[in-house]
Structure formats: C-alpha cells, structure tokens
C-alpha cells in the first residue's frame, strides 16, 4: 500500500444543493500519469481542490501519501506541485520575481533547475507578468509546479493556452517526472492529450466517476473500423459469427466491419482468401468517450 499516492473514499462535495462531486472512490499509484477527463464543470477541479484542502468534503475522506488531507495539509502541500485551472499570478511582478517569491515560500528551491525549466519552455523570466500572454503565464505556472521536483504533481488543465510545441515539451516533462518515480495527476477535457500521456484514465461526468481504466485496455476494448480488400469477391458468411465482429458489409471483394477487442479470429478467417490490403482505423479516446457518453444519455432516458 506504500505506493498509493492518492486515495479517496466516498469523497463527496455539495455546493449548497448543487452537486460538485459524488462518492468518489479513486486511487493513484506512485509513478503513474493519471488523466482525469471530463467536460468543464464535471467535478475535476473540485476533486483537486479537495485534495489540497481548499474546500472541505461534505462526506467521505481523502488521503495523499497516506496522510489525511484535512489533518496533514501542510505536510502534503510541501511534497506537491499544483497548477491551478484558472491561474492568476501577481501582475506587478516579473516572472523571475514571482518564482523567487514562491520558491521562498517553500524555503528555497534549486534555482538552477527552475531556470532550466523556464529555458526549456522558452519563457523570458525578466518580463513583467502583466505583459505576458496566456500561454506564457501558463509556463510560469508550470515552472512553479515543477521547480521543487515534487513527488506529486496536481495539474488542472496544464496545457491550456500552450502552443503545440510547448505542449510536447510539457508531455516530456511529465514523462521525465514519472521516470524518476514521481506521480502526475492531471485533469483535462482534451481527450487526445490524456490518450497521449496518461497510463490510466478516469472519466468523470456530473460529479460521478463513470469509468476508470488503463488507457491501453480502454483502447483494446474499443470498437475499430476495419476494411479488408481481397483479390476476388468473398462471401459474407465467411466472417459472420466471429467473436467481436459486427456490422459486416461486403461489396466487390471489400469487407467492412466493426470489431471489438482482438482481430485474431477475423484475420485467420480472412487468410483463406487472397488478401490485398487491410486498413484499420485506430480508435482514439474521443470515440470511446463519445460512445460512452451517448450510452449514458441513452440509459438516462
């Protein structure tokens, strides 16, 4: 259990009558990148703010590093780097002054490392924060979250405002952190991003965790569109009834189908004919996500 970095038990937060988060049971283990996915207002920030003791649970509890988030908040925050979802910095300071101030609130950090991070993100620390673009402010936010090399990074929408090149750099930084055994918990409403860097994903909707899965498993489970071209025309019967295969359409030696899970049986069935080409459309989380949400909506009706 020592590698359990975040652990929640029935964690619930109501804002008046409005439900922020309902009965969250979730775990994050050391060295993982966990993506917390959901539309705006679904409860992502609420979860992170509960972990940091900014807001107090209506019910349930949470632990970080095995310590209760209410009782040991200061000890926890010493080992956490946080990037707020709506980052606001002190406009009257320069980037460097802002970081110096924040570093001193931690009792000092390795300043060379902080400057190296800024350089990596191509951030000019001598500029006044009020003259910085949203993306550049976000970089200041990222540097302050990473600069003390925390064991846990809680990042709320970390790539918002960053250009694609800088997003790549951020993904690298997150990967390097986990390579050193540190843990990244990030929220996002960008599916491609979570798919790209997360090991595991939690999907949250209207305050409820609706799915928690390894990204790899999720993809394996997903429906894929497959298209097989044959040298001659083939009978549809040769493919019907195979495990996981549905929606078969055959036209002039081209077979279209949808497949869930392994393609093994389908490929073996195809091998009895002369195969010219197979194209597979790799599913992305977006499709999984939308499929999931549509399913929820159907159930709801």
């Amino acid at each position: 259990m020592t590698n359990r970095v975040i652990h929640t038990e029935n964690l619930t937060k109501f804002y008046g009558k409005h439900r922020g988060l309902i009965d969250l049971n979730f775990e994050v283990r050391a060295g993982e990148v966990v993506g917390y996915l959901g539309p705006n207002g679904s409860g992502k920030s609420t979860t992170i703010r509960l972990l940091l003791d900014f807001i107090r649970p209506t019910k349930g509890r949470a632990e970080v590093f095995g310590m209760d988030v209410r009782a040991y908040s200061v000890d926890i925050r010493r080992r956490v780097g946080y990037l707020p979802g709506e980052l606001v910095l002190y406009e009257n300071l320069t980037g460097r002054e802002m970081l110096v101030h924040l570093a001193s609130l931690r009792g000092g950090v390795d300043w060379k490392y902080a400057e190296a991070l800024a350089e990596r993100l191509e951030l000019d620390l001598s500029r006044s924060i009020k003259t910085l673009s949203k993306g550049n402010k976000q970089k200041v936010g990222l540097v302050q979250a990473f600069m003390h090399q925390p064991e846990l990074l809680l990042l709320d929408e970390p790539t918002s405002g960053l250009d694609p090149l800088m997003q790549q750099e951020f993904y690298l930084m997150a990967r390097e952190a986990t390579a050193e055994g540190r843990t990244v918990f990030l929220s996002s409403h960008v599916l491609a991003e979570v798919e790209r860097i997360a090991d595991r994903v939690g999907i949250i909707r209207e305050g409820k965790l609706v799915l928690e899965e390894e990204v790899a498993t999720l993809k394996a489970k997903a429906l894929r569109q497959l298209e097989m071209h044959f040298a001659t025309s083939v009978p549809a019967e040769a493919f019907t009834g195979l495990p996981g295969v549905r929606d078969i359409r055959v036209e002039n030696g081209i077979v279209h189908c949808t497949i869930e899970g392994s393609v093994d049986a389908l490929v073996k069935a195809a091998a009895q004919f002369e195969v010219v080409n197979i194209t597979s459309h790799e599913p992305d989380l977006e499709e999984i996500f939308l499929a999931y949400y549509t399913e929820c909506d159907n159930h709801a009706e």
Binding site: R49, Y90, L102, R106, G141
Partner: peptide
C-alpha cells in the same frame, strides 16, 4: 477575488 489565493495556499503554509 483576484484569484491568487489558490496558488498561494497550495504552498506549505497554514
């Protein structure tokens, strides 16, 4: 109100 308190209190300060 400015929105800076979140960041400040994510630091190890009571």
């Amino acid at each position: 109100e400015k929105g800076t308190l979140d960041l400040l209190l994510s630091y190890p300060l009571k």
